[in-house]
Design a protein around this nucleic acid. Structure first.
Lengths: 147, 147
DNA sequence: TATTGTTATACTCTATAACTATA
DNA sequence: TATAGTTATAGAGTATAACAATA
């Protein structure tokens, strides 16, 4: 999926290679599984983030998601164009837009999350349930150390 | 390192997030640890790849590494400019350049690999040796399924 | 005619600067 | 004066097309 030929063990055992390879493969799987819903993995992440929160302004959401506010504009343009989110003027500060999921957004989120779960399962197809949980747990500990 | 604020458990437990986060963190660590040697993680990968092989043409190397041949030109320009690799005209097919590590390239490779090992150890600082090996093994099995 | 290395061009992604409307 | 959203612009990074030398 990433490379067709052998890189040799010295390179293919490096952590950077293994992580990148897994990420690229998961990206490809997400692309396949999310295609029916017309959204990208990144857009799904935005929907999932908005769903679990009190309504926030564009900039608050952008800061939390770690994207630039100018990038957020385009991201929301796309999602709004698909009627998955709505921008509502903030009544208390009319400079701000409050971002909310539409009903369609809610429904799409539920279905797309099942598709994403399927993509993850396919990535981990070689592992049994205990090993899959172990991998997730180890990765979580690795990243949380530098929260 | 990646995000300053909490994303909520629904998002921060996704495999895509965990993998990307680990990769970005490792990139940052590599940047720090490799700075003294004046090379990037990607350039180190090229050096490591060349070291374990019979001399190959630019295109063969590019294909193995999964980069475009036009991208390879710039990559080798940079490495050649630092006197880490050399292009030698292939005596049997004068269209080709054979790529070899210079002595400086060999020495830099050895030192940079130790730095890369240190970057990996720092990424996995929260894990003990057994867990670190486990993570590596699980990732290897995940990716090798789609070789 | 096809292929290697190269250069020129275009495309994507993202960030910086500038504009507007509100505060 | 400062801030939220937006737009315009510029910068990396990479891919496609075109070119010169060689096969």
């Amino acid at each position: 999926m990433t490379s067709e030929a052998d890189l040799g063990p010295r390179l293919s055992r490096r952590l950077a290679y293994l992580l990148k390879r897994a990420m690229v493969d998961l990206d490809t799987l997400h692309e396949q599984h999310l295609r029916p819903f017309g959204i990208t993995a990144r857009e799904l992440a935005v929907l999932l983030f908005l769903d679990g929160r009190e309504p926030e302004s564009q900039q608050q959401a952008a800061a939390h998601l770690g994207v630039d506010r100018t990038t957020m504009v385009g991201l929301l343009d796309a999602l709004e164009g698909k009627d998955l989110v709505a921008r509502r003027p903030d009544v208390e500060d009319r400079r701000r837009n409050v971002i909310v999921l539409t009903d369609t957004g809610q429904a799409t989120l539920r279905k797309a999350m099942r598709a994403s779960d399927a993509a993850e399962r396919q990535l981990l197809a070689e592992l049994d349930d205990r090993e899959a949980a172990q991998l997730r747990e180890l990765l979580k500990r690795v990243t949380s150390g530098r929260a």
